[in-house]
Design a protein around this nucleic acid. Structure first.
Length: 189
DNA sequence: CCCTGATTCGC
DNA sequence: GCGAATCAGG
């Protein structure tokens, strides 16, 4: 496989969208994430908004062969969140979350959507925009299994983003799924 | 352990 | 130019 124009385009697009190298590699097919990363570097893309790993990689002494030196060219000035969003009106119409779990797995406590941390909900709405939208078959042990939409419609899919820990959901969904049992104003009745 | 990106270096 | 191997970090 070579880097055809189209493939490079897709690479750029996805990288720009913040997709991970491995995800891009999967999408392209025929390449590994290393290939993607290598290409990204060669293309001169590399850091998108500072995030992900660390931009600072200390030089690694001498390994096997003598390494001359590794001067640290100071990057550009600090970029305070470019926020380059042109057309992205997130109306979020019927973005109702109706969690329904595939098999016998920990069910998310039906979010009442009114007793959940608003910030957490906002986060969910945001990540759901770039969810992988996997179907049941594509779920793996480490893809977020948070269901979105109505299982009875074609708009049903699973988040599919990388799960946070040993949990079944990604960070955002864990946020709304595992609300600290509190705020529950113990209203005896 | 899973993942991320970064870098190096033989091809 | 390419990307596996390796590195470094979360």
């Amino acid at each position: 496989m070579s880097w055809s124009d189209e493939r490079v385009e897709l690479l750029k697009k996805m990288w720009g969208e913040g997709q991970s190298a491995s995800q891009i590699a999967k999408e392209l097919g025929g390449v590994t994430r290393n290939a993607v990363i290598g290409k990204v570097h060669r293309l001169g893309l590399s850091n998108r908004n500072g995030s992900g790993g660390s931009a600072d990689k200390s030089d690694t002494k001498s390994k096997t062969t003598a390494k001359p030196a590794k001067p640290k060219p100071a990057p550009k000035a600090a970029k305070p969140q470019p926020k380059t969003e042109s057309a992205a009106p997130p109306p979020i119409p019927a973005s109702r979350i109706k969690p329904i779990i595939p098999a016998g797995q920990p069910l998310p406590p039906q979010p009442s959507t009114n007793e959940i941390d608003p910030a957490a909900l906002a986060k969910v709405n945001e990540i759901e925009k770039k969810a992988k939208k996997l179907n049941l078959m594509e779920l793996t042990e480490r893809t977020c299994k948070w269901p979105v939409g109505d299982p009875a419609t074609p708009d049903f899919w699973f988040c599919g983003l990388p799960v946070q820990s040993g949990k079944p959901y990604c960070e955002a969904h864990v946020g709304v799924a595992f609300q600290p049992m509190s705020s529950r104003r113990d209203r005896r009745r």
